[in-house]
Design a protein around this nucleic acid. Structure first.
Lengths: 142, 142
DNA sequence: TCCTGTGTACTGGTGTGATAGTACACCGAG
DNA sequence: CTCGGTGTACTATCACACCAGTACACAGGA
């Protein structure tokens, strides 16, 4: 599939998977009715214990994003995109809010903040474009 | 002093203290040569084990923000403000970067992002102003 | 039916954070 | 000097999250 996992990050692996799947649904990379990789398959690809994937899938199931088909696998719910775009918005808003709180507590001015924001935005936009270019050269996907 | 600690947050208590002291130095609320609350005093105020405070102070000492005066307490280093503003900038940039990565991975457009950013900025700026107003009414400080 | 693949449950190890208790070396005031 | 304050060190304990390993129950195809 398309995940990038950081095993040494401060966020748990299962939560990284949950978040990335929600973002993929919000971005319509994963659409309703589509099946996701099985626990063992994804675990093999990412070199992670299947239980960790299973835990992420359970979380996504209780968040009404995935639906289990017993004996067959997990499928994206038809109505998941609404919840995922909503979740995406609150995830982003929360991140921005935390960063802003730190910035203002540290005495950073709004103008400094805007400058930093735009710089990061253009940097990451550019980074995404180059990634897409690389991906189109060879049909790569993880 | 002025700390707000969330014992149930995802970040450790000692790290919250480290971060808030760095931000306070960057904002010149704490200036070079000024002494900080003692381990036992701050532990009493925040209802936290003194060992946790000591751990935060050790971290700040190895980060060259605080300096021990044996038998007297901890003092803010004269040259700490440079490091703290630098640390503040990287903390904020990191937070913004994470939020942007999520937003772009979730298919959010740059314009949506700017809108969200400005909304959060004005909201938190206003929130700070009202806090300052409350603080000036009564000479409160923790 | 048998086999393979699916999700799921249970158990245990490991690392980390927080707390408690105690003890030590140092400084400054009385 | 003595006493109360300071930071520091060390050990032990508890709780919790994360993860690995294994075994189980179920569905579908040969």
């Amino acid at each position: 599939m398309f995940f990038s996992i950081d095993p040494n990050g401060d966020v748990p692996i299962y939560e990284q998977i949950v978040r990335q799947i929600k973002l993929a649904v919000a971005d319509e990379v994963l659409v309703g009715g589509q099946m996701v990789a099985s626990v063992r398959q994804l675990a093999g690809e990412l070199a992670i214990n299947p239980n960790t994937i299973a835990r992420a899938y359970q979380q996504l199931q209780s968040d009404l994003v995935l639906e289990p088909l017993r004996g067959r696998g997990m499928v994206v719910r038809r109505d998941a995109i609404k919840r995922c775009t909503k979740a995406r918005n609150s995830i982003v808003a929360d991140g921005v809010s935390r960063a802003l709180a730190d910035a203002l507590a540290g005495g950073m001015s709004p103008d400094e903040l805007r400058e930093l924001f735009e710089a990061e935005l253009s940097r990451q936009s550019q980074l995404i474009q180059s990634n897409q270019a690389n991906a189109s050269e060879n049909g790569t996907s993880t």
